[in-house]
Every structure is written in C-alpha cells, then in structure tokens.
C-alpha cells in the first residue's frame, strides 16, 4: 500500500513526515547500541516479507505483517520500517520521496498501537488457540489500521479521492483475513520455539542461552 508522489496535499504530507520523524527519533533512542544487529536483521526479515506473494483467490497479495513487526519491535518499528521503505523506493521504485513519511506512518502507527494494546495480554495467555487468536487480532487489526490511514490520507487530500479511499478499504478485507491467519500461525510458532522473542527484545540481553536448534529444525 505505497502511495505515490503527487497525489497527496501539502498538509497531509507534512503531518505524515512529522509523525515519522518523531516516531523514528523515539524508536532510535530505545535501540541500545548492542541491539543494532538484532533490529537490523529483523528489519531485513520484514523487508523479505514484502517480497513474498501469497495466493488469495484468483490473485495474490504481498505481505506487510506490520502487526508482527509491532509485537516484536514496539517503537523500533518506526526506524525499521523507515529503512525498509527507503530501500524499497531507492532500489525497487516503490512509493516515492516526498510521500515517504506518510507511507511509513501509515504502516508503523498501527504496528506500535498493536504493540501497546496486545503485548501485555500476550504474556498472560499460554494456550495455542489463545495465542493464535491474539495473532489473528494483531495481524488483521494492524492491516485494518493501515488501510484506514491510507484512506484517510487520500480523503484528507481531496474530495475526489473519497470513492477510491472507500474502495481501498473494502478491497483489502481479504488481505486483513490472510495477514491475520498468517500472523496467528507465526505467533504460535515463535511462542513455542523462541518465546523470548516476544518479550525480551526490549532489553539488550547481550548473550542468550544456546538456541534450541533442534526444535527449530523440526518445524518449518
């Protein structure tokens, strides 16, 4: 859901830029110096996600997975997504330059929101079904948030975009379902293989205990 340059009005562009600037500054502050490899690798993993096409009906969608990004990274989602979208624009020609702030804010804001809404609850639930349900909620909710923000960016830029804004929302309902199911499954797996990924990424935890490599090999 990359908006291109030229469509949005000045105030919308300025607002998106300001939100992204503030979110990135705040996110960077909370990245410890030793955490950079970790956030960098997760950012690369999410960049990969945007290249994966998943069949849906007769067509296919590419993943955003910002719910999962939010749960794992919190405020760090802003710098991670800024880097990912910047690289997409520079090397693949997606999105634009002036509109970059709006595009990052549209994806990162719901991610951060999901983080604060669901992270504590996620710590309390243990059962497979409950974790899957949380993932479903996080995945579908964050895409819905992004779609609403994209629609709002368009509607805020001119009345003539209103029908397109509505169309964006309704055509993305299948995407919400798929991202929800995917995020649910991914959470169930992470919860079983590396539960600390969901809780401990916040602390700088320099040396982790040996990874459960065997358990990891078994499921993929």
């Amino acid at each position: 859901m990359h908006i291109v340059d030229g469509a949005l009005s000045g105030p919308v562009l300025a607002a998106g830029g300001a939100v992204t600037l503030a979110g990135t500054a705040w996110g960077l502050r909370s990245i410890g110096e030793r955490e950079i490899p970790r956030v960098g690798l997760l950012s690369a993993a999410f960049f990969m996600a945007s290249l994966i096409h998943v069949p849906v009906g007769p067509s296919s969608v590419h993943l955003i997975l910002n719910g999962l990004i939010g749960l794992v990274l919190g405020w760090r989602a802003f710098p991670a997504l800024l880097v990912a979208l910047l690289l997409q624009a520079v090397f693949f020609g997606f999105g634009g330059v002036v509109v970059l702030g709006v595009n990052v804010a549209n994806i990162a804001l719901p991610a951060v929101l999901i983080h604060f809404l669901l992270r504590d609850a996620l710590g309390r639930f243990r059962g497979r079904t409950a974790v899957f349900a949380m993932g479903l909620l996080a995945g579908a909710g964050s895409i819905m948030g992004t779609t609403l923000l994209v629609a709002a960016s368009l509607a805020g830029s001119g009345q003539e975009f209103l029908p397109a804004a509505e169309l964006v929302f309704f055509t993305h309902i299948p995407v919400m379902v798929v991202e929800g199911l995917l995020t649910g499954a991914a959470l169930v797996l992470i919860r079983r293989v590396r539960p600390e990924l969901l809780h401990r990424v916040a602390e700088a935890a320099p040396l982790a205990e040996p990874a459960p490599a065997l358990a990891a090999e078994g499921r993929s």
Binding site: L68, L182, A185, A186, L187, L189, V193, L197, R219, S220
Partner: peptide
C-alpha cells in the same frame, strides 16, 4: 505463517 515465523 510458520515459514515466516521460522524466518524470524
């Protein structure tokens, strides 16, 4: 979902 979780 499992595939991407594993990638993470």
């Amino acid at each position: 979902g499992y595939l991407f979780g594993m990638l993470l």
